[in-house]
């Protein structure tokens, strides 16, 4: 084999190997996953309200991690969505809509649950970190879709109110491994706070629908 051919062949091999790396399909190798989890448990320490127990994953977090950055099979995604849908808690009094003015404050509030935050609150949802909501607020992120005119577009119906409640309570009931936190399910927001945020989305008087 001459030198040129060898270089050519080496190039082909490199491309094939790189191609495989990019098309990685299966979940993370369980041995690597186990070792990574073990490594994390010795690499952190409790601080303020953020305790080591936060590293203990539930099944949803585990599946989303090992499939992170890869194409998740449809049946795994559906399993996650079904499990999370079943976990949605509805308010005992059936009241889904609170005060949009409080909801706006919660949507603006970025503090809460970091070890640098006060354990006695406030705890917000920082919806604006990821979403456009009211037109007045231009400091919004783009990780999620714009929610401006959320109910104006969908209709001021019971169905819209129920969807808003369940999405904020447990976003993974509708889209497995979404980047959106499960605010109600994980106890970030109280039932009343979820109600107020739902009002921000669905109240015809809310700035979101202007």
């Amino acid at each position: 084999m001459n030198r040129q051919m060898m270089i050519g062949l080496a190039g082909t091999v490199a491309i094939v190997v790189a191609g495989c790396a990019a098309m990685q399909t299966g979940p993370t190798d369980p041995a690597i996953e186990a070792k990574a989890v073990e490594m994390m448990k010795t690499s952190f320490k409790d601080k303020g309200q953020a305790k080591l127990a936060r590293l203990n994953q539930d099944e949803t977090q585990h599946l989303c991690s090992v499939w992170g950055g890869k194409e998740m099979p449809k049946d795994v995604a559906e399993k996650i969505e079904r499990a999370n849908l079943a976990l949605i808690k509805w308010p005992a009094d059936g009241k889904l809509v609170g005060d949009w003015k409080q909801g706006e404050k919660i949507a603006q509030e970025g503090r809460g649950m970091q070890y640098s935050d006060s354990p006695t609150g406030p705890v917000g949802a920082n919806c604006y970190a990821c979403h456009q909501l009211s037109k007045q607020e231009v400091s919004y992120g783009t990780m999620g879709p714009s929610l401006h005119n959320f109910a104006k577009i969908r209709g001021y119906t019971e169905e819209t109110r129920r969807y808003a409640w369940s999405k904020v309570w447990n976003a993974q009931a509708f889209s497995a491994c979404t980047n959106m936190p499960r605010f109600g399910h994980n106890g970030i927001l109280s039932e009343q706070q979820v109600r107020d945020v739902v009002a921000l989305l669905v109240d015809p008087a809310s700035p979101v629908n202007q």
Binding site: A36, A50, R54, N56, G69, P181, N186
Partner: peptide, 11 residues
């Protein structure tokens, strides 16, 4: 694996 590890109250 750590980069993709989801956990805590915010997932």
């Amino acid at each position: 694996a750590i980069f993709f590890f989801r956990g805590g109250p915010h997932d």
